[in-house]
Amino acid sequence: MDKLAILIPAYNEALTISKVVNDVKNVIREIPDSVIYVYDNNSKDNTSELAEKAGAVVRHEYAQGKGAVIRRMFREIDAEAYIMIDADDTYPVEAIPEMYKKIIDKHVDMVVGDRLSSTYFEENKRPFHNVGNSLVRTLINFLFKTNIRDILTGYRAFSYQFVKTFPVLSRGFEIETEMSIHATEKRMLVENQVISYRDRPEGSESKLNTYGDGFKVLKTVLNLYRGYHPFAFYSVFSFVSALIAVVSFVWRVLLPYSETYTVANFPTLIVSMIFLLISVITFFSGSILNSIQNNEKRNFELDLVRADERLKGLLNGKQ
């Protein structure tokens, strides 16, 4: 079992991977039993060869996508603390010791490298990425009542308990959103750490698709909100359906009936009853799913206890 595992997902990062690995090696010299893992995700250049030459343990994930890489990392590696950093040399490795201490000494479950509070908006040359980061941060903090200052950052530290209880569902770059919401909803201890950010060096290309990945992130946010807060999510549809039913019934059926004592608008009456039925169904669907979600929260607490026991067993075996 490692004391600290540095996790570096990499896809076609030959230009920067050697520098990132060497920089990380320099800052973790004082941390015993530290290992740098580079997971190559079907790179078409010599990323894996350069990483291995620089001193990293190189492994491969053949299912394409950052989410698939992180799933493999979390399943295969046991460590007291984990730090994930991108291979594009945009993050300062000097923050690693402090992030590590927060995991070990303060028992923080996830430390978020906060770019948006420092140099991100000055360094990043893609304006729609700036808008997207701000939009996603505002939306998530509003919906989930949290204060994570950089939702989409790839620079994070994790506890053993977080890694071994986090269900990786996403395949692509929306994985960071999933991590942030999972930690919030499971009441895990999260801290922000302000870090500097520098844009990619010339010749290095981002793998992000501004619009495609942006829509995937927003879709992930809505799906996770529906999953974690089903009653609130379905109550919106229940309320809207009930409002349509009441307004259409009163305006097109009840008021004319009070004057003529005949039901002249049968189609409207039928439609209003359908919307009323939809309102009732969505209300009780949300209630049932909310009960299931509460039960899942209780099961998750038991998963945390089991993760603690596994960690203690690994540490005792190591000693």
Rank of each mutant, 00 (worst) to 15 (best):
S134P: 02
L224P: 08
P97R: 06
F173Y: 14
L218V: 06
V163M: 04
E176M: 13
T262G: 00
N147W: 06
D308N: 12
P256A: 08
Q161F: 06
S287P: 00
G227S: 10
I36E: 05
V280K: 06
G154L: 01
L254V: 05
V136I: 15
I31S: 00
S287E: 01
T47K: 07
V136P: 09
T119F: 05
N41L: 11
L315W: 03
Q64I: 15
L152D: 02
T268K: 14
E123G: 03
A157G: 04
L254K: 03
L189V: 13
K19N: 02
K186W: 01
K25C: 04
N299E: 14
F166W: 04
A242G: 02
I274K: 12
G212W: 11
G317R: 10
V93E: 04
V57E: 08
D109W: 03
A63P: 00
E13S: 13
E49P: 12
N316C: 08
S204W: 13
G113V: 13
D88S: 08
V112C: 11
Y155V: 13
S248Y: 05
F173K: 07
K44M: 11
L269M: 11
Y197I: 06
N295C: 08
F283W: 04
V69P: 09
A87L: 02
H107M: 11
I36K: 05
N299T: 13
H129F: 10
D45F: 03
M99D: 00
N12T: 06
F144V: 09
L314S: 03
K164N: 09
M84L: 15
E52G: 12
S241G: 07
R198Y: 06
S206N: 04
S235G: 10
N316L: 14
